[in-house]
Amino acid sequence: MVHETLAATNAVVTLDVAIPDVFWGWYVTMNMWAKSIGTGLVFMLFLLLRRNPEEMKGLRLSAMIVSFIMMNIFLLFTLADLHQPFRMWHIFFYPHWTSAITVGAWMASIFVALESLMIVVMLFKKDTVTYDKLLFWTTILAIPVTLYTAGIMAEATARELWQMPTEAAQMILAATLSGSAAIILLGGSKLSDDTKDFFGTILGLSALMAFIIYMSEYIFGAMKAEEVAAILHYVKGDGEYATMFWIGQWVAYILPMLLVALARVSKSSAILNLAAILAIVGLWVVKHVWLIIPQLLPLS
């Protein structure tokens, strides 16, 4: 630990033209948020197919189209975030396989291709058998697609806050949280009360587990690594991102948990829908704060 020496040394940086600015900003937040919804919807469709296939009728096409749109938003923001977007093709022609960015780009492209195929199958042939077979493989692929961003964060050696396997757990939970929220909203009256309860439970438990992980890092992270302690100062006390951090935690996790419990007791779809909306909105805020704060710490 070195910051304890500050009182004695009174060391002050008087000249350092360190690299300014946040390099991965809200474009990357959009990327992660949209991908969570896109992959999460596929997970939920698969669960619905296994649990109650007759309720898939009105959702096969609509949910897949929404997932497809979200995946394209994810790809669009990924592309827009590049400083040389017209060189995106380099990833496919000069792939470097140690990079999670490369592996992710390939998997996400295959994933979107599979989704396109499923939409075509449903739209033009109404072939539910092929659709359901493809859904199995798309769901399998959705796991690494949703996880690979955690791999990128883990490879970002400079950012001590982003650790594996914590980020992997958060990515999966973000997908189950936003996926269940999205299908509750999309399903509406097409879903039975029992199925809504089921997805509500997934929503509530995802929120609870994600919240526990964030709180664990918030409270205990600083006890193991000095850099993490320094980064967490941005979300503690009067830290620059403290208010935004807590808004995210309340909107994405705490309120949805409470509302899901209330919806179960009162059997209210409206309250469940509110929980779903809050979870989707709050997830963006939570992801954004966690993305930005490690970039605020000087590296030199």
Binding site: H3, T5, V13, D16, P20, G25, E227, P298, L299, S300
Partner: peptide
């Protein structure tokens, strides 16, 4: 060697008003 071993105080830099180009990119 360690960036955490020194403070970075606003107003105590030799080039307080240095102009920075938007290197963080276009957004």
């Amino acid at each position: 060697l360690n960036p955490l071993a020194s403070e970075r105080e606003e107003g105590y830099n030799l080039f307080n008003n240095i102009t920075k180009l938007p290197l963080g990119g276009h957004h």
